[in-house]
Computed example of a mutant assay.
Amino acid sequence: MGQDVATFSKQADQMRTGGGFIAALDQSGGSTPKALRLYGVAEDSYDGEDAMYAEIHEMRSRIITAPDFTNAKVLGAILFERTMRAEVDGKPTAQALWDDRGIVPFLKIDKGLEDKADGVQMMKPIPGIEETLKEAAAFGIFGTKERSVIHEANAAGIKAVVAQQFELGMTVLAAGLVPILEPEVDINSATKAEAETILKAEIAAQLDQLAEGQDVMLKLTIPTEDGLYNDLADHPRVIRVVALSGGYSTDEACERLARQPKMIASFSRALTEGLSKQMSDADFNAALGANIDKIYRASI
């Protein structure tokens, strides 16, 4: 498969100017049992990792094939590696998203976080990243997502996080994909606002180093100061600034996001809030549709 230039260009335009949000369907090993518990699937109801991933793929397939899960409100979706390699309705997931729903596919590429140092958690090494990116491109993936976490306003730590994010971003760009850089600021940090001010300056300095055509996306915690990231959204090297829900309830995340004129949502837990395996398809689709609509309204 892979991307032809026309498809890539169409997807980039959708991400740049489309009205809507990015669905994060990328819970991985550590967060999958919790996601399943919230979906009404207890840990004693499946045996082993393969069965667990089969359950979460069934949940994601149900979301992707729901009537409201289209590019009318959902611009993109972030996938976990196993989801990328799996199928929805008999097609590789990325192809099913783009061909059938008009939704741009992304891939989560980080392998989790290092222990906290200098008030931050850097990304762990990512072995075989070039091969993964090559595989992603072959599947028709448009871009990637990579997460690190900032816990306090430590200038050295934040500088290191941003440098690592952009270094990995350059590897992604070299593979022909678009990186979503995600230096999350912990919503419970006592120095959240100060950390965000430092983060904004570090990101701006890195963006200014990028050449024309080296365009990135940013996934950031909804800032304490409304409109803080407007300048980043307007930077010529930034396709879009998206917001993570970070542990806020859906209602609070949407209420805070609605005050950010140049950020759109990229929520995971908020998207699936209130959904359960036991629901009838009609109830499931209605609940998901309501979540999609709420997140969409906050994003536009």
Rank of each mutant, 00 (worst) to 15 (best):
D4P: 09
Q11W: 11
G19T: 15
L25V: 00
Q27S: 05
S31M: 14
A35S: 13
L36N: 07
Y46N: 06
Y46F: 12
M52D: 07
E55N: 11
R60P: 00
R62M: 01
I64M: 00
I64V: 03
A66I: 00
P67E: 13
F69C: 02
T70N: 07
K73P: 04
I78Y: 08
L79N: 04
L79D: 02
E81V: 12
D89G: 14
R101T: 10
P105L: 09
F106E: 05
D110E: 12
K111C: 09
D118N: 15
K124A: 12
P127S: 13
E130A: 13
E135I: 03
A136Y: 05
A138Y: 01
G140D: 08
F142A: 07
T144W: 09
G157V: 01
I158K: 03
V161C: 15
L168Q: 14
L181S: 04
D186Q: 05
A190E: 15
E202K: 15
L207T: 10
L207N: 05
L207K: 06
D208S: 10
Q214V: 08
M217C: 08
I222A: 02
P223C: 12
T224Y: 04
L228Y: 02
R237F: 07
V241I: 05
L244R: 06
Y248F: 13
S249I: 00
K262N: 12
L275A: 09
S276L: 01
N285K: 05
I292K: 05
R297L: 06
